[in-house]
């Protein structure tokens, strides 16, 4: 995903060699793994939301306007618990802060996408990012339209899944006690994935320990904001200690760039996180 590739694909797009039909087909095939994931995770979200008394219209509204997987699971909880707007905003910042880095990585590739650009930026989820940051596209595929159709298809899967989930949750009367655990399971899974991707476990451990301590000190209603402040403080405290490790991670990611970046959509997020630090570093130097 270095400079050469983006120059090459820029050239291909400028010469207008892409044809719409093969671009749509190529985007569809690339999106298939995301389709499976989004339909299932979206359905889980819809079922959860419905269990809290919000029908499929709410699910659709959220998937159209927010379109961020983990955050929508958290949003179910914020909604049902009647969170304050400030608490919701803070939570959103923390859960979604990683998206800053997807944007930084895509600055150049999205720079010439014209009318598609606002939507491409809006729809840059973990999974879409893992697909658009892979550089190699066939000659007959138009880069800009590929980005656009891929983003659009992915969001359609997500919306479809959430509506299906909410509708199914309403139609089937099964004992849904315990279904909230889907959200816990999602985060446990991501936690395990992240744990295996890094040797530096201090941030993960700090996140757990600080939150547990705040939960015990402040109670279930008001522990979240102290936890966030505590985590931020701890990260700044660790900054000197963690930086060398980060450079090692970045160097490692750089080495991995030479291999094909077709990470599965699941691990794309972490791979992206460490990979794009690198890219931005390069971008900054060039400028």
């Amino acid at each position: 995903m270095g400079k050469n590739n983006s120059v090459k694909s820029n050239g291909a797009a400028a010469s207008g060699s892409g044809n719409l039909r093969s671009t749509v087909r190529y985007a569809f095939v690339a999106s298939l793994p995301v389709m499976a994931g989004y339909l299932v995770l979206g359905t889980g979200f819809g079922v959860l939301l419905q269990a809290k008394g919000y029908n499929w219209l709410w699910a659709a509204l959220m998937s159209v306007t927010i379109f961020a997987g983990s955050m929508q699971y958290v949003a179910v909880d914020l909604l049902s618990g009647g969170a304050t707007l400030i608490a919701a905003a803070l939570m959103t910042v923390l859960v979604n802060i990683r998206h800053l880095f997807y944007g930084l990585t895509m600055l150049e590739k999205y720079s010439d996408t014209g009318w598609r650009k606002p939507y491409l930026i809006f729809a840059l989820t973990d999974e879409t990012f893992s697909l658009v940051c892979s550089p190699e596209l066939p000659e007959n595929v138009d880069r800009k339209n590929y980005y656009f159709f891929l983003s659009l298809m992915n969001q359609c899967y997500w919306i479809t899944g959430s509506i299906l989930g909410a509708a199914a949750g309403a139609a089937l009367s099964f004992n849904s006690a315990g279904i909230d655990f889907a959200m816990t399971a999602l985060f446990v899974v991501i936690f395990v994935e992240q744990w295996e991707k890094t040797k530096q476990h201090l941030p993960a451990v700090a996140g757990v320990v600080i939150t547990v301590v705040c939960r015990l000190l402040f109670g279930t209603e008001s522990f979240l904001i102290p936890s966030m402040i505590g985590i931020l403080a701890a990260m700044f405290l660790f900054q000197g200690k963690l930086n060398p490790v980060n450079e090692a991670v970045a160097a490692d990611a750089h080495a991995q760039e030479t291999r094909s970046p077709d990470d599965t959509w699941r691990s794309g997020h972490e791979a992206g996180n460490s990979g794009d630090k690198n890219e931005t570093g390069k971008g900054g130097n060039e400028r």
């Binding site: 802060i97 909230d180 446990v188 530096q200 700090a206």
Partner: peptide
């Protein structure tokens, strides 16, 4: 900002797991 983007995802996922189990 770069540093926070690097370390926060790990810490926040830990926080979210605990949050789910609150």
């Amino acid at each position: 900002v770069l540093y926070l983007g690097e370390v926060l995802p790990y810490a926040i996922m830990g926080m979210l797991v605990v949050y789910c189990l609150k």
